[in-house]
Write a protein that binds this DNA or RNA. Structure first.
Lengths: 359, 359
DNA sequence: TTGTACGCGTTATCAA
DNA sequence: TTGATAACGCGTACAA
């Protein structure tokens, strides 16, 4: 690792001159010396020591992506396609902007904070924060923060949120199910907070608007941890006959459930209709292909990173960005209306089989 | 961000003393001052500036995870479950050891090198390197390197490789197919290098040992990029009737193919048998559940990180670690032997339906 | 146009 | 047991 000082020594000039050339402050340097330095730099393959640079400038060029893992969920957060696609979008955007991404996964907010402080990261993207988690972080950490999928009105005073019109998504989907003749519709999730709550509310609202009463028993709770999942699926499958359709809070759960149902000889969509939320590869690759609520997860990651980068440049950004959803009708919902006229399906889906394509 | 200097000023003592307390060099400090400093530290919530520390010690506590993306593969490398689970394993291990992970994705080896140099990362984990890529990196970068899934005998002189018994895996699987009466077996992959070549070789060897001739036309090439995938699948599906079984180089491809086949009315396993490689959630969630070669991807990531950490501590490690594979028999292979006696399946699979469990 | 000198926060050496 | 001071590599204000 060659240093500026060493280069200056070998070239018989000052470190300032070398530094100026490196930073293209050409006005300050004669063409002659400029060329001499440039050639030398190329030859020795100089790379600046970023620790020294950061120390001198009090910045880090690092953007932290902190994922808060929920203890009651899977052991390996990143296995969820949603999470990995999100990371991909963030990483790409950060890299293209000349920043670096430091990934940190933890279930402990304090640990995340310490990590962020030591590295003096220039900006922070948070995912998985519940309620006032984000606020607590923002009180300690005085640089730009962008949250993803956090539901906290209070929080919006402290940070930007990149979210989704979750409620509209499930509202549309529930309405679609109702239009297909479904009345006994369950909602499957692992919790009733944040995003999941919003999705639950959209579903409830659609029921209400259609004059269908929501009952507590419509909520099916799944326990996704490895040691619980089999028992959990068994319970859910036992209760499946109570409903004609189950709305799942994610594609991952929808596909997991469909596998379990099929293992028990319950046919989708003939015996029961299943829908998801996310529109990721799991549902696209499944057969029958999953009818689901689409969201552009990569765009979510990209938007989060972009917004943060704008804030770092001092630009103003809205404190809340909501990405749209849309319904993707595939093959897991059965029309059970007695009068089988024109199918709602044709209205909703413009293009069929926009299936998985390694994108 | 309070500094040691500031703490020393407020406490009317020297930075050395404060530093000594922080680092538990208790022998050098009186109990009295020690307590005084400790209390103050807790109160002000001191976090060290890692740039300054790194500059002073010439280390970084960073382990770089560089993923080389192949230009002809998917746009978003991380969407492959294999990659995301790998990252998860590495991140967890690094974090638990008190190190930090910097993720860098690029298709340009030079770019990766520059990144690694500026950050002065203490160690490097490489994935996706072909042939002598790894060697070129190791010539520039003089600190410990661990590669994942790199096939390069020459490279083993320069770095440790964490690999898999790929050849044995496909050998076993092809043998299994043959035992089920299959003779016309295709092999599907997107390239013939590194890991894919090893897997191809295992398959060829099994054919040979069974007295079946391998023909060039047995190799089905898939083009996974979004703009090619549909056409590619169409071609492959058209050729499917030439074979009774197709071995895919990954679960991702196996499941992708099965969806395409089913869309065309070709039934798995009745019309054709399909097997994969990896044993990830895609195949586990699919119905019929995918018969595949199991590998423990998370263990691969963990082993890579562990090995690197050992090297950082100066411990010796083997320069090649090969993790085992095993065959998981599920439901995508049909026994087409004319004499239908005892099924080979019973011999291979001890436990049925070790299906997806959010693990 | 070029050079000198200092500060960034930490650790380490050596003297008090 | 404690403190003064140099060093790490870089950027920059200011002097020449």
């Amino acid at each position: 690792m060659i240093t500026i000082k060493e280069i200056a020594r070998q070239l018989n000039m000052s470190t300032t001159t070398v530094s100026n050339v490196i930073h293209g402050k050409a006005g300050e340097v004669s063409d002659d010396t400029k060329k001499k330095v440039q050639d030398f730099l190329d030859k020795v393959d100089y790379v600046p020591n970023i620790n020294a640079r950061n120390l001198a400038q009090n910045e880090s060029k690092i953007i932290g992506l902190a994922l808060k893992a929920r203890a009651d969920k899977y052991e390996n957060l990143i296995m969820d396609p949603f999470v990995s696609v999100l990371i991909g979008g963030v990483e790409e955007t950060i890299r293209n902007a000349g920043y670096f991404m430091m990934l940190y996964i933890s279930s402990d907010t304090g640990e995340i904070m310490r990590h962020v402080s030591t590295w003096n990261v220039d900006g922070l993207i948070l995912f998985g924060m519940l309620n006032d988690d984000g606020i607590r972080v923002s009180e300690k950490y005085k640089k730009p923060i962008v949250c993803i999928d956090t539901y906290s009105l209070e929080g919006l005073k402290h940070f930007t949120n990149i979210g989704l019109d979750d409620e509209q998504g499930t509202y549309d989907m529930a309405s679609y199910l109702i239009s297909q003749g479904h009345k006994k519709i369950a909602f499957l999730s692992d919790n009733m907070n944040g995003v999941d709550l919003a999705r639950l509310n959209g579903y409830k609202k659609a029921l209400k608007d259609a004059g269908i009463k929501y009952k507590e028993t419509n909520f099916l709770k799944i326990r996704p941890r490895a040691e619980d999942i089999d028992e959990s699926l068994e319970e859910i499958c036992k209760r499946a006959p109570e409903f004609t359709a189950i709305m799942c809070v994610s594609d991952l759960y929808a596909v997991t459930l469909m596998s379990a149902l099929e293992d028990r000889g319950i046919k989708v969509p003939d015996d029961i209709s299943i829908v998801g939320f996310d529109d990721n590869m799991l549902g696209q690759l499944h057969r029958p292909a999953l009818t689901t609520v689409h969201q552009d997860v990569k765009a979510k990651g990209v938007t989060a990173a972009d917004t943060l980068l704008k804030q770092l440049k001092g630009q103003k950004t809205p404190n809340q960005i909501k990405l749209p959803t849309r319904i993707i009708v595939r093959d897991t919902v059965k029309n059970i209306k007695t009068d089988n006229k024109e199918s709602y399906k044709d209205i909703f889906s413009k293009k069929r089989n926009d299936s998985y394509s390694c994108k």
